[in-house]
């Protein structure tokens, strides 16, 4: 293709985006658009799959059978959502195995929130309430993303996730209406998870390298700061109902802006965790890598069996 032809295609592409048309896998797209999509979708998929680990740790310890099945179903959904997202990325010509490879080698990122330890039962409530709450805000915005397979995966995910946040909130509600010890457990969990949850929306807009292009291509529909503000505004009243205190002395309602002002996020901590030095980065990666490596012989066996069956069938026909 000549330079002019590419330029022409780019113009057509930009015009389609501007008209809010969806882009489908076989459509022509700029290489950078393809790459950005692969990066964003696989990162999202990795977050789902790594996100199974902190909650998965509590399945055997859930304090009631009712909580146990809800948690198990939720963690299972995360596997499903990872699968939907990997499939969406696969339409762009990258395999799930390649994406795993990028995750395991540390080349691909995932949401930093999962590098924090889930140490009490209240963390199951808080993860559902805050982490899923933040994720839902991100994901609802992504239902109208420009790449068709990603948008469709997000619609399905949003529909399925609607119980996740309620599941978490109900856990906390029970704790907050329980004994002093239970309420203290809830408060302690909020203290630990609040700031990392705010970091889930990524760096402030001015320092987010990909935001501008992602907004232009309608890969992202709202900026990090907009989404973060939305999260805070919707979460504060929920904390009030629980009767626990958000650990931010600067948090207060701004009547003029009709939104909450909030304190400074510790960005040094954010970057430290992103760069791999959070409390559980190593444990999470070790768990994923060993699941993959210990699964090797299983995947190979199933493949070999299928091929044998296939050959047998051909022989029977022949």
């Amino acid at each position: 293709m000549t330079e002019n032809e590419i330029k022409n295609l780019e113009e057509i592409f930009e015009a389609r985006i501007a008209r809010d048309e969806k882009i489908e896998p076989k459509d022509w797209m700029p290489e950078k658009y393809r790459k950005s999509n692969i990066r964003q979708i696989s990162q999202h998929a990795h977050s789902e799959v790594v996100g199974m680990l902190p909650e998965g740790n509590w399945i055997t310890r859930a304090p009631s059978l009712r909580r146990k099945v809800a948690l198990l179903a939720k963690v299972q959904d995360e596997a499903g959502h990872g699968l939907y997202l990997y499939s969406a990325a696969e339409t762009l010509g990258i395999s799930r195995e390649e994406m795993y490879e990028q995750l395991h080698s540390g080349k691909a990122k995932y949401s930093s929130i999962f590098n924090y330890p889930a140490v009490t039962w209240a963390d199951m409530g808080t993860i559902g309430w805050l982490v899923d709450g933040a994720a839902i805000i991100n994901q609802v915005a992504l239902c109208s993303t420009s790449f068709g397979p990603y948008a469709r995966a997000m619609v399905r995910i949003c529909k399925e996730e609607s119980f996740h946040q309620r599941q978490g909130y109900e856990i906390l509600l029970t704790l907050c209406r329980g004994t002093q010890e239970q309420k203290a457990m809830a408060q302690d969990a909020l203290n630990r998870w609040w700031w990392p949850s705010l970091m889930m929306f990524g760096p402030i807009d001015a320092e987010s390298p990909n935001t501008e292009q992602s907004m232009k291509w309608k890969l992202k529909r709202k900026t990090n700061d907009e989404l973060r503000q939305q999260f805070i505004d919707q979460t504060v009243p929920q904390a009030e109902i629980l009767g626990i205190t958000i650990p931010d002395p600067d948090l207060k309602w701004n009547e003029e802006k009709k939104q909450y002002d909030f304190g400074e996020i510790d960005w040094d901590e954010f970057w430290q965790v992103v760069k791999g030095h959070g409390p559980c980065n190593k444990e999470r990666m070790d768990a994923r890598v060993s699941a993959w490596e210990e699964g090797n012989w299983v995947r190979d066996a199933a493949m070999a069996y299928a091929e044998k069956q296939h050959d047998k069938k051909l022989k029977d026909v022949g």
Binding site: G56, L72, V75, A79, L83, A291, W292, V298, R299
Partner: peptide, 12 residues
């Protein structure tokens, strides 16, 4: 096992 299986499909 949830989250530690050989493939997402088998985990599910």
């Amino acid at each position: 096992l949830c989250g530690h299986g050989p493939a997402l499909e088998t985990d599910i």
